[in-house]
Design a protein around this nucleic acid. Structure first.
Length: 206
DNA sequence: CTCTCGATTACCT
DNA sequence: GGTAATCGAGAGC
């Protein structure tokens, strides 16, 4: 049964920088009335709180970033650049802000449906960026604060296979916080976003 | 209330 | 490699 493999609250209730690489290789599942879509997570970034100048939570609690302060394992979805939604999964215990931005997935199931929501693009362009994947998977702010630790419209499962070639680098599209190498990705995967961070290196699991 | 600019993308040269 | 599109959050007055 699919429910048994869904990532639990305790998986997310840890240091964001530990959770982020552990999400690589997991399956993001999106259930809609039109069908189910599954993407393998191949690129993520960790964002924390007061110690992270790139984070929305750097300057404290606001209406937008409130999910980052809530219980772990929930969706934090924000709108940016007047066009795009970005999907994060909240981490760390309530009151301790953190979230992992999902930057790219590899389409696994429901590719026809993804192309319906994001027409006229090649396969590798379908979900190779934070705004691209939310459009392909029909994710917008109506799913903000959705609990992702149980079966429903949006959750994450463990497919059982471990991920080998995880690399890390600085994060993409930020101005502050470039000292922190908190972007994690599957090296060489054709579905990661094409732009590159600095300090690319193999991630050593501890 | 006004203003700036963004955890981006697509399309241009 | 450069930049327009597009709009809401949040900072500042």
């Amino acid at each position: 049964m699919a429910g048994a493999r869904i990532l639990t609250r305790s998986f997310y209730q840890r240091d964001t920088v530990k959770v982020a690489p552990d999400l690589i290789g997991k399956h993001l599942v999106r259930v809609t009335v039109n069908g189910e879509m599954v993407g393998r997570i191949v690129e993520v970034e960790a964002y924390r709180g007061r110690d992270d100048p790139a984070s929305h939570a750097f300057r404290g609690l606001t209406p937008r970033n409130a999910p980052m302060y809530g219980d772990p394992g929930h969706a934090y979805i924000y709108f940016t650049y007047g066009n795009h939604y970005c999907l994060n999964i909240t981490t760390q215990k309530a009151g301790s802000p953190g979230a992992v931005l999902l930057r790219a997935v590899e389409p696994i199931e429901g590719i026809r449906l993804m192309k319906h929501f994001r027409p006229n693009v090649g396969d590798t362009e379908l979900t190779s960026g934070p705004g691209k994947l939310t459009k392909a998977l029909a994710i917008d702010k109506t799913l903000n604060e959705q609990d992702m630790t149980k079966e429903g419209p949006l959750f994450v499962t463990n497919p059982g296979r471990s991920e080998s070639e995880i690399y890390q680098s600085t994060r993409i599209g930020i101005s502050d916080g470039q000292d922190k190498p908190w972007r994690f990705y599957v090296n060489g995967n054709p579905y990661i976003s094409k732009r590159h961070g600095l300090r690319e290196a193999r991630f050593l699991q501890r």
